[in-house]
Design a protein around this nucleic acid. Sequence first.
DNA 1: ATGGTGGTGTTCAATAATCGAACAGGTCAT
DNA 2: ATGACCTGTTCGATTATTGAACACCACCAT
Lengths: 249, 249
Amino acid sequence: MSPVRSSTRQAPAPADAAQSVPPSQTLSRGIRALEILAAAERPLSIAELASEMGVHRSVAYRILRTLEDHALLVRDDAGRMQPGAGLAVLARAVSRDLQTAALPELTQLANSLNMTAFVAVWDRQDCVTLVTVEPRHSAATLAQHPGTRHSVTAGAPGIAIQSSMTAEEWSVLAPDLPYRPEAAEARRLGYAASHDEVIAGLSSLAAPIRVPGSRPAAIAVVYIRRDQDQAAVGQALAASAARIESQLA
Amino acid sequence: MSPVRSSTRQAPAPADAAQSVPPSQTLSRGIRALEILAAAERPLSIAELASEMGVHRSVAYRILRTLEDHALLVRDDAGRMQPGAGLAVLARAVSRDLQTAALPELTQLANSLNMTAFVAVWDRQDCVTLVTVEPRHSAATLAQHPGTRHSVTAGAPGIAIQSSMTAEEWSVLAPDLPYRPEAAEARRLGYAASHDEVIAGLSSLAAPIRVPGSRPAAIAVVYIRRDQDQAAVGQALAASAARIESQLA
DNA sequence: ATGGTGGTGTTCAATAATCGAACAGGTCAT
DNA sequence: ATGACCTGTTCGATTATTGAACACCACCAT
């Protein structure tokens, strides 16, 4: 296929049973610092972070300095920490091809349907929103922001992702998660629907995107009014998904 | 000002001369793994990453396992590593208020001007693109993606950021970086312009956004044709910047 | 002024986390 | 089947990490 790309042979990733190599303590703590900071809604001092992490302040100091070196963290005027631009650079590389292929489709969908459109990927137990596009005349903007995560067993994107495989395939890949019966119908239709699942009052439609070599994703829209022509929108989503898949091949 | 926000007193962030605390080795390596992975345009095996990082394979193994635990990394079908969705979650927290305030303005600008609009923040020597919105009828989409970085001394966004402060303030905050004379004029006009600076053939206009407590940012558009009414577009940018600033107050 | 409070940054011996070699496999070409 | 290349695991030696203690600064009440 790609004659230049050498060394294609490699070993499998066997079922990850209880891993026997203990995680790196320092690295874990560093990441936890980032997670805490991302969840906090205001900048935090080193001392606050240290107590939040449950480590000695001098340990936090060293860790935060390191994160700062790599621009994953920046300081306030007052010296307090907040997430840094380096994270945006790293995030751009997440499913880069999918992001690139999906963006034009999302723009097109958002504006023609006048709904917020987004791509979500399957990550462990969750569905994570990767890119979003809001419609042009967004008066009451539905804020579906990137980085949002919710259970993959709830909402149209999750159902769509499930619908890209059979119940049996699902039980292999996600033995702990239930297979939603709606996925079977979504499989027939080419798209999935949900109402009031993730956020009360909101409805969502989604179509699966099969990504070669990776877990499946979904392209979706959210909306408020229930009186939509679900079939038409669903088919538009499925068509977009097909175009995206063809670009990823 | 904000009576609820307790504990406002804190120490300064004195000039960061050569830091005397050595960075955490393990954490640095973990971040470097992410950087390498983000720069690579294909998934990498553990062995490849190890040699790329210049560490023993078993060291890389432990580090990657840890990153995987936190969903900053996911594996290929074949067990090779690629950036994970957790990074998207963290990135969403970068200048969250700015992102939120800017998004509607970007959508509005992109569609009314029919140009790609984006927000860039100042990070060390660089200008990093945070959010972008492409116009609706994007035939030839200018792919200005989030995460793009280029020197803050080049391009309209960089000049706009410089224009938000005087040459003297600049020399304090960025002693190593030159102050572009264009910034003085941009300061008068309320917006900055550049041609062929970052990417040959592309022009850009930008207005500064002053962010309370943080480094300044910029809102900008890129376009190909030179025959634009620069003043009108520049003023639209400045107006958007003003609205964003008022939301951040 | 003066001390109290809450913060940052630095140093250093003790300790526990990390390192890296060696081993045990698995998969895919040839 | 043989070699090439990979993942995952174990374990003693080494070294990075830890955390207490110290010096210092800014701000606020008293």
